[in-house]
Design a protein around this nucleic acid. Structure first.
Lengths: 253, 253
DNA sequence: GAGTGGTCTAGACCACGGT
DNA sequence: CCGTGGTCTAGACCACTCG
């Protein structure tokens, strides 16, 4: 007969709690509505605050909730689709891309970046910061690494401001013929600077999109873009068309 | 002058801890090596175990560590690249795809899926489970939803086993002309069944890849694939070629 | 059975946003 | 100022793996 016990497993409290809250969110709350505070909620469910927080963290990770220190916990709108794979192979900064330059510096990149660019590990490259907005809020921060070799005619230019120099670098880049690109997506956590840009706390979950741009047989530029994982759904392909939304939704009045 | 205080912010302990551990991982540990247990580590750094765990959780989220209950914490190998965007538009189950069918059933899908498929919310569809291995371990679990309308000639077939029926459905699907597809990636947490398949605990972070397959002017199939976020880096584009790795690496002897 | 990570508790204080 | 979520503690017990 064996000891084939079925479902004898004690479900963790926070997991059960998450399920209960999730269903309540679907049926009893509208987008934008404020939940009771954590201490009250914990008391109501008869658990310690830490346990309740474990459930809330999961729901926030899934994009169902939004929590802000000093304010409260609100029901999040469904994730917004953010186009990433506009398969129109194009250089960053090309007409109509969704990014806007923030600043530009020359710095020695992390070793992993240097390896991908096939530059020396002590060699400085142009480092352009850009940010991306969608529906009025920041959704992504990007670091663009561009070796000197990709923009050889730039040295003459001496742009007044940092953002103007960023634009110069990008404009110079367009002159190369783009031979292809290469993308990867992985989970990461926001570095302190990215977090500030994304209006999140450091360590917040982000989707890291790494793109390599090929030209002249080399990697001519490398982009590392970090998207807010809580609010974004990255879309690939021609799309931009119909959107998939999840679950029932009601608008706050 | 204002109170422009610079860097007066006290960095959280777990954040600092994470940095320290991360550097130690780079310089003093080899892939596969076992770390001291959590109680010892906490004592060594003079913090509570919960605080140490917060740091470890972050590192695990970033794919630097791997923790298994009853075993210990080990240094994770760099994430493996998993090709997702083989831009060869092809039906699931086409020759050479990385998936293998597990079983097949007919069930009423979640409302969001029904909406995407434009089937009624009470209408049952073929639901094929598939799993994907890479380097000898499971990396993804998939649920494929296929409306009856997409495989009209299937009813005659009465396959003996569940997996055989899955293959029949996929084979039938190939007969349609694929007109395009549409992909989205977002962060999620593993449901209980997916978690088991992926050899993780429920709630583990996963990258959810949703693919819609278009044929005959409709959505002819919909795939929801959940990839282990800790071990996978999703790669798009023709690539499959050169791999980007991160940081210094050493092999355990 | 011994040792590991996973869950949970009941407190405390801090940092931040609004009033 | 008060109320919010964020961090932290020092314990306890549980579930799992392995020898």
């Amino acid at each position: 007969m064996g000891t084939t016990q079925l479902e004898t497993v004690p479900e963790p409290k926070y997991w059960h709690l998450k399920t209960v809250l999730s269903e309540a969110l679907d049926s009893e709350f509208a987008v934008g509505e404020i939940l009771p505070n954590e201490r009250d909620l914990a008391a109501r469910f008869g658990v310690a605050r830490a346990t309740l927080r474990q459930a809330l963290e999961q729901l926030e990770l899934e994009g169902r909730l939004q929590r802000r220190r000093g304010v409260g916990t609100t029901v999040a709108p469904p994730r917004m689709g953010v186009a990433v794979g506009t398969e129109s192979h194009a250089w960053p900064g090309a007409a109509g891309d969704a990014w806007q330059p923030v600043d530009c510096a020359e710095a020695v990149p992390p070793a992993a970046v240097a390896d991908a660019l096939e530059t020396g590990r002590d060699e400085a490259v142009h480092t352009v910061r850009r940010s991306r907005m969608s529906h009025g809020q920041p959704v992504a921060a990007e670091l663009l690494y561009i070796p000197e070799a990709s923009v050889p005619d730039l040295s003459a230019i001496d742009a007044p401001s940092s953002v103007a120099r960023a634009r110069s670098v990008l404009r110079e880049l367009q002159r190369l013929e783009l031979e292809g690109q290469d993308r990867a997506v992985e989970l990461g956590s926001a570095r302190a600077d990215d977090a500030k840009e994304l209006d999140r706390l450091p360590g917040a979950p982000v989707l890291v999109v790494t793109t390599r741009f090929f030209a002249e047989g080399r990697t001519a530029a490398l982009s590392v873009a970090t998207y807010r994982a809580d609010t974004c759904r990255l879309t690939f392909g021609a799309s931009g068309g119909v959107e998939i939304t999840h679950g029932p939704e009601r608008q706050a009045s």
